[in-house]
Design a protein around this nucleic acid. Structure first.
Lengths: 209, 209
DNA sequence: GCCTGTGAATCCATTCACAGCT
DNA sequence: AGCTGTGAATGGATTCACAGGC
């Protein structure tokens, strides 16, 4: 099978998950991996792995498995993570800073090219990663000048919606939102929410069972 | 309907989501909310809200809606988030620190009662929130002494599995894992993974479509 | 013999539509 | 009249099971 058969969201999510174990296998100089091995590494069902991968065309070999290197390249191509993505971030409290300094982002091709804060105390400060804190009033201009494609929001909840609006006006079509509110954005503007307390709620619920 | 009809995971996840808008409605002194209103605030389907809530027994009133206050209390009881949960954290780099200082946790009843790091430079340091950094060698003891119920992991990926093992040995049955690896734990030990780069991967994929 | 690729079967989740209560 | 609670219908996602190629 191949191309334009609408890919399920769940598949996309898992395929991204497969990347990390594949990289590990590369490091270990494993040439080939079976759906069973990969499934075990990701805690999913082997048939699931095969079905997921078959959405993008059969790059396995029957009786053998999948070429680790090729599969890695293919998946990166599929996810468009074979290139650099440019991020902006608004809200430079502890969480914002931690994200800026987090090496994993860069390792996976996500590069912060601008950092904004509304606090005049912070604006103008030099950050160790080579950025200068910008005022929020410059978002619109810098999104354009610096080709920012994804906007991260780490402000307080009360400011988050405003920032989302500004991002959208500036042309941003994808937002990673760390504030615990539901942003209202036009359909075309994608939002991914991150809220650790929801994860904790889930753990607490299960523990209490 | 009521009690021991196994509740779907998806429902638990959404019910936790309902909490935040409900609190907002409380602040705004709204006494009553309809499934439609709540659904709109959470970007879900109204029938979904009703079905979710009906799993726990009918606390709505036909023709009227749900009592905001009662619903809030009920949901908190269901999720066991009507009490304090005690957390430990291992790995005090930027991300670990940001979590420690994050006010949302405490606001929702999640309290860090111990912070560990393997770096001797960090051990012994006083943190503004009133904790002293402990060596990882003390995890086992302090989990018991301090009644820690949930273990957070913010170490480098290479250390994460070891910490998970230590947590489990110490009696921890729920782990919030920020390192981008799949932890191997016994069935009885729950793990929730948080990996922002997966969220970014998803956004990147959709943007590139 | 072994492991992929995939229809068929199953399982789960979401949505519809309306009966039932206030 | 209005909004909940819920069976029935639909739609997805997961898993099974095996045919097909190496």
């Amino acid at each position: 099978m191949s191309s334009e058969t609408k890919i399920p969201d769940a598949t996309i999510e898992r395929v991204a998950l497969y990347l990390r174990p594949l990289e590990k296998l590369m490091e270990k100089r494993n040439q080939v991996v079976s759906s069973e091995k990969l499934a075990e590494m990701c805690k999913v069902n082997p048939a699931q792995v095969r079905k997921d991968l078959s959405f993008f065309g059969g790059f396995g070999v029957r009786g053998v498995g999948y070429e680790v290197h090729d599969l890695l390249i293919e998946i990166k191509k599929i996810l468009a993570s074979d290139r650099e993505w440019r991020l902006g971030i608004v809200g430079l409290d502890d969480m914002g800073m931690a994200l800026l300094y987090h090496k994993n982002f860069l390792k996976r091709g996500y590069k912060f090219v601008a950092a904004f804060d509304s606090d005049p105390q912070k604006v103008g400060k030099k950050l160790p990663i080579g950025l200068v804190v910008q005022p929020v009033t410059k978002i619109k201009q810098l999104v354009k000048d610096l080709d920012i494609e994804i906007g991260v929001i780490t402000t307080s909840p009360s400011r988050a919606q405003d920032i989302a609006d500004i991002y959208f006006e500036a042309g941003i079509l994808a937002i990673l939102n760390f504030s615990p509110i539901q942003l209202r954005t036009p359909e075309c503007c994608l939002v991914q929410n991150v809220d650790f307390t929801l994860n904790l709620d889930h753990l607490a619920y299960k523990l209490s069972q």
